[in-house]
């Protein structure tokens, strides 16, 4: 059910992001979605790729500090208020969102948003009960 996200620790200096992108390209990975959380000194690059297990190994072998995190891929109606509706649902049930970012491609007619929450299962339950689709691991990594 969860989507596997790869997180990479990057120092805030030029060329580091390019190094990751180059490494993934050279090993034939397709980056499906990404976001960067940055501070003045370092950043955390978050990636959704096809074959995350192998990507994890490739990055680790190249000497990067990497971790795997489970996130939710939530289908959000692609219209004004679509995201707000989903977030309200989670807010109302007291589920805190650590961060979210968007997918480039759509899933059917809907936009796809990646959500990091602590209560993964509960979030899926709440969303599902309200007719919001949470995308399957296999589907998301292959989109």
């Amino acid at each position: 059910m969860w989507v596997k996200q790869i997180s990479v620790f990057l120092e805030n200096k030029s060329g580091r992001l390019a190094a990751v992108a180059r490494l993934l390209a050279d090993n034939g990975f397709n980056i499906r979605a990404l976001s960067i959380a940055d501070t003045s000194d370092f950043g955390i690059l978050r990636l959704i790729v096809n074959d995350p297990a192998r990507a994890y190994q490739v990055l680790k072998d190249a000497g990067f500090t990497v971790s795997e995190t489970e996130v939710l891929a939530v289908e959000v109606p692609d219209r004004p208020g679509g995201l707000a509706g989903v977030l309200d649902l989670l807010h109302d049930t007291g589920i805190n969102i650590e961060y979210l970012y968007a997918f480039v491609s759509k899933s059917g007619g809907n936009a796809l948003v990646l959500l990091k929450v602590e209560a993964l299962e509960r979030a899926v339950e709440v969303l599902g009960a309200n007719g919001i689709q949470v995308q399957d691991y296999h589907i998301v990594h292959q989109i």
Binding site: F9, T39, D41, F42, I44, K60, T65, S67
Partner: peptide, 18 residues
Amino acid sequence: EVSERFFRDEVRHLESLG
């Protein structure tokens, strides 16, 4: 150096480590 053992996918975790 930040080793894998102490790396979490959260900015605040790393900031508090620092």
